[in-house]
Simulated assay, not measured.
Amino acid sequence: MKEQLREMRRLAARAQNWRTETGIPRVAMVQGAVPAHALAAVYEPMVNLILQGRKSITVGERTLDYDPATYFVMSIDLPAVGTVHPADTGEPYLAVALTLDPGIVGMLLADIPAPPGGSTYDSGFSVASVTPELLDAWVRMLRLMEHPADIAALAPAYEREILYRVLQGPHGWMLRDIATPDTALARVSLAIHWIRHNFAEPVRVESLADMAAMSVSVFHRHFKAVTALSPLQYQKRIRLLHARALLVAGGKNATSVAFGVGYESATQFSREYARFFGLPPARDAVLRRNATRGE
């Protein structure tokens, strides 16, 4: 696997310190010391592969670490905080990611037999050991950056192979569940979608449970298993992330932003913002704004 990683590092070396598009649909890469404050975000469903260095990602109270010996799978939209580290030998952090498209996963599932026993439902994110077969598919995908005329014809096949290799792995059930109607994960995702698009509205867990066609106790248990957060904690993280985006954009003070994202108390907003991001709203916004400008 060393030769595969070496080639992938060469191919991805053009990546920048932020999400860098490759020209291949749904495939992106990143390199370097990404500031910690820039890695607090709502992460979309994806397969993320570290090529160099390592990364820690925290969702709720769960923190997972992964490196070039492992890959990360996230099957649902989750507010998370990431931290990246260079390799022990000093080379910068380097990673590639494939954003998951449930439609493509669904078409692939129609062509392969379902495993016995059904879903081993556990969480909405996890880490697994990388395999030579998975790396091989990734190498061929990244080679397309050097042959852009081949992307339209070959990228869909390589994407299917990457997904197939993940489906064959210990967390393949995550991909199955996001593309299969009426699984617990699919039903919880309906509630998550509502929270993400109505984050400023009061949340009634009873209404979310009805949306997911579950009892309140079952819904709460599944939601916590998938996201490592309660529904109210999930909403709070979404509100804070939206608030940060508004503050960095400028034009509004912390109080107006607090009320705009659904807080009833500016003091509570400032306290929870500082706890999550490590700095009070105004100071954090200035820091991130300057980092974006390269100052």
Rank of each mutant, 00 (worst) to 15 (best):
A137S: 00
E272M: 09
P156S: 06
V286D: 08
L240Y: 00
H222P: 12
A95R: 02
H193I: 03
R275E: 07
M145Y: 01
V84T: 01
F269T: 01
S119T: 07
V248A: 07
A149V: 13
I57E: 02
S215K: 02
H242P: 06
V248D: 09
V42Y: 00
A69S: 02
A179L: 01
V205I: 12
K2W: 10
P86K: 10
A225Y: 04
A179M: 03
A245C: 11
F125Y: 10
D67N: 07
A12K: 09
V34F: 00
K55W: 01
A245E: 15
P156N: 01
G251C: 05
A245N: 12
V257K: 07
A249T: 12
E161I: 00
A28L: 15
V81M: 13
F219L: 03
L229T: 04
V205G: 15
S129Y: 14
W18N: 10
H85Y: 11
I24A: 07
H85E: 11
L241W: 00
M46F: 05
D177Y: 09
L144R: 01
V127G: 05
T292D: 15
M141Q: 05
S119K: 03
A128M: 06
Y263H: 00
V96L: 02
N253L: 00
Y273A: 07
L287Y: 13
T120F: 15
A209F: 02
T70H: 08
L98I: 09
K2L: 13
D284T: 10
L241N: 13
A13Q: 07
F223W: 07
S123M: 14
I112N: 05
T255P: 08
G250N: 13
D111A: 04
M46T: 11
R62V: 15
F276I: 12
L154W: 09
T20I: 00
E206T: 01
M1Q: 05
L247V: 03
Q52I: 13
D111K: 14
A282M: 06
D177I: 09
V205A: 15
Y93L: 10
P280Q: 12
F259Y: 11
T89M: 05
A69F: 12
F269E: 01
A149E: 04
S217V: 04
Y234R: 14
T120S: 10
L49A: 00
E295I: 09
L49V: 02
G260S: 15
A128G: 02
V188G: 06
I112D: 03
M145C: 07
A12T: 04
H220F: 14
R62G: 13
G294A: 10
H193F: 15
L229C: 08
D101F: 11
A157S: 11
A137G: 05
R19P: 05
S265M: 03
D65F: 07
E7A: 07
R10A: 07
D101Y: 05
L11P: 06
A13S: 02
L287R: 13
Y273K: 02
V59G: 14
N253P: 14
S129I: 08
G103Q: 10
I238V: 15
T255H: 10
M46V: 11
A285Y: 04
I162L: 05
A36N: 12
Q233D: 01
P132V: 04
R187C: 07
M211T: 08
R6Q: 12
L185C: 08
L167V: 02
L208H: 02
A12N: 11
P102N: 06
R239V: 02
I112P: 10
G32C: 02
H171T: 14
R244I: 11
H193Y: 13
P86G: 11
E272V: 08
S189D: 08
S256P: 12
R62M: 12
